[in-house]
Design a protein around this nucleic acid. Structure first.
Lengths: 406, 406
DNA sequence: AGACTTTTGTGTGCGGCACGTAAAAAATAT
DNA sequence: ATATTTTTTACGTGCCGCACACAAAAGTCT
């Protein structure tokens, strides 16, 4: 923790004001005073400075109040054009790019269904750079107006350094992908786990709104775990976010009992591998995308394919085991399940839903509520934007918080 | 997070100065300036106030410096008599009480080998009250000079409320033991998990010194898990500390495969239960204390008792599994193993030591260093003192940090 | 040896900045 | 015009940092 000086004090309060305007805006100065327990003087000074910086702007209309007497309130809101940011998500089979404004509204997005899995790093960087430049151009913005970029990908990431320690997408370890992109595009680049972006998005706009503690489990090609803990994204000691795939589970189906990494049982990649075998045996080709594959899984299970059902059930139970352990540790009031694999249907979901309460410790069982979040391509993009915007808001100590539903 | 005002600013800096003096004291004002990057003016003002409050005191001697020229430094150090606190630890078979001064030096301690397990709550409270009053009297202090008491016990504790949600020591749930004791003794009482006290003690004085991230696994009657995360004791969402015993493990010994709570395999209580059967069968009486029991376990294993060895090995492996999972989540640079059960010897320790690196994810394997801490009765007592002192230091946001070895 | 210089640590006015209180000004409804 | 509510302005307090003065010892010159 830093020592305090007037500058820090100002930064803290300025950030709070920004944050309240983002969450509850349009909002008047008096209301900000109430929410933050700051004096009108301070609020006026800070909002004045923010208006001068064009980060927020006043709006005359809409100042309704019950007894509409007295001087009308001047509502303040974020200036959507104060900054623009780019969010990028890398997955094994696609690159997605989105441009948002200062309110994390998506202005333009672009999906490239390209298999980047195991491509050389410079090639991936090329693809990302092209995608970003194209998307920014489509949004009718010059690169100079882009304040920053946030890129999410699966793996072990040291966010602070923009370093990818390890990822299923990269053949190499310890890739400084953040600095490399920053160099290419000439803008600040944040690197983070894809699931952390979704976690932040859920916090600002989704099921995590109003909650300072919740957990997101994403089940795509890789498994991801995002933890919101006391309003901050939880990162392990080295700044590494925890990797759900590295958790160990017990296999309790009889044939091969033993300890395995969760990613070997329940990830999209693992399920795909097991299903590919099955499909090939039956003379079917492998579907091109994870989404298609999951649709195929569901068809098969509904068609009575026992083997496919077993694969799905094993995955669901293993996930349940892991989630129950996580609940025991973090006691989150809500667990959000997300990811393409959930489209595999009830064959996977039912065992998962049943296992979690069964294995959760009795004292905590009533605490965690399980929510399944239909995956929207836009969710993560807003998350990436939010992650970058949080930097721009100038947070003195980290995360911000959820937006009010309006 | 609070909004900032000059008062908070002062509180932050004042706390920092206190903390630096505790960690590195005796220390001169200049050195404080260097460490905290505060101006001499500020440091002088703050130390002046602290001296006025008799929390710290100057000391002329010992102001050595390489080229011993110029005005000699006035060293500042904590005033050991600024406050006194009491630490209490409850275990199923004993109550331990210690009185410490403002530097967490133990002045007087007292161990009552009483089985409190399942006694009615008021009886336990009586015993604690008596023990505390006696120990304070032995330290030649009137109760009025005791600034507070911190009590550690196994179970699920909501520290902020002094509430014991659940404990192996109490027959009831949701016992407001903190307020009850506070009422009886007329002093502030903090309630916390016993392992959190040890964790804080390790941070201030032990193997966690200088580390902002580490984990403590305590293996006594119950299993305990203490996590130091970014210099703060990690608590789950509801303020509950995670309970290691609630973690799930796979039993991979053939006879009864399946999912079990770790506490059913590796806790002192579980081992004791299994061993009692064995001892009774052989016509031996059950040893009175956990420590004795563990000695017996070791004798047996060294004497070639296969069944005892199996019990120990199963416990070790299950613990290893759990710890490996925790390492995957928190990536702590160090894991401290502590607790009476470790005195059970290599039969338990070896499998534990072997399992952890085997199951730790490859990317993190080199990160976590495993340390076995010989259990000292004094450790937790200093922890309890530290926990209470931290409050007295007036921390604006939580924990402090390690002391410098001198 | 004694006075002077050098060196370093500590305390004191002063300005800057941020917050808060109180009162004035602004802007509308009655 | 009056009442009411919001916002701004004027002023006071507290804290930090700067520059400087003061304090105390070691070295140095006469």
């Amino acid at each position: 923790m830093k020592t305090a000086d007037p500058e820090l004090m100002r930064a803290i309060n300025r950030f709070h004001v920004m944050d309240v305007i983002r969450r509850y805006g349009p909002i008047s100065r008096v209301e900000i005073c109430e929410r933050l327990q700051l004096s009108p003087t301070t609020v006026s000074a800070i909002t004045g400075a923010l208006i001068d910086d064009a980060l927020i702007m006043p709006r005359q209309e809409g100042a309704v109040r019950d007894p509409a007497r007295g001087r009308p309130r001047v509502m303040l809101e974020l200036n959507p054009e104060a900054a623009f940011v780019v969010g990028v998500k890398l997955a094994p089979d696609q690159i997605t790019v989105a441009v948002t404004n200062f309110r994390a509204d998506i202005l333009e997005s672009l999906t490239l269904p390209i298999r980047i899995d195991r491509q050389p790093i410079p090639v991936i960087a090329d693809l990302v750079e092209d995608g970003v430049r194209r998307c920014v151009a489509d949004a009718d913005l010059p690169m100079a107006r882009i304040a920053g970029l946030c890129l999410g990908l699966p793996g072990l990431i040291v966010q602070s350094a923009g370093l990818c320690r390890q990822s299923p997408l990269f053949g190499e370890r310890d890739v400084a992908f953040g600095p490399a992109l920053s160099e290419r595009l000439g803008i600040p680049v944040l690197l983070d786990t894809d699931v952390n972006l979704v976690t932040l998005a859920e916090h600002w706009f989704g099921h995590g709104r109003g909650l300072d503690d919740f957990m997101v489990v994403s089940i795509e090609h890789s498994l991801g775990l995002g933890i919101m803990h006391r309003g901050e994204i939880f990162r392990g000691a080295s700044g590494l976010s925890p990797d759900l795939g590295d958790l160990l589970v017990q296999q309790h189906d009889a044939e091969r009992a033993g300890i395995e990494r969760l990613s070997a049982v329940a990830s999209g990649a693992a399920i795909a591998a097991k299903l590919h075998d099955r499909l090939r045996r039956d003379g079917e080709g492998a579907p091109p995308s994870l989404r298609r594959l999951m649709a195929r899984l569901r068809e098969r299970v509904e068609g009575g394919d026992r083997e496919a059902a077993t694969v799905a059930a094993a995955a669901g139970e293993a996930l349940g085991f892991a989630v129950a352990n996580l609940v025991a540790l973090f006691a989150p009031p809500r667990v959000i399940l997300a990811g393409t694999v959930l489209e595999g249907g009830e064959a996977l979901l039912r065992p998962l839903r049943e296992t979690i309460p069964r294995l959760t410790p009795p004292g905590l069982g009533d605490i965690a509520e399980i929510v399944v979040q239909g995956w929207e391509e836009t969710t993560w993009a807003r998350g990436a934007a939010a992650m970058m915007l949080r930097e721009l808001y100038g947070s003195p100590w980290g995360t911000t918080g959820p937006a009010e539903r309006r």
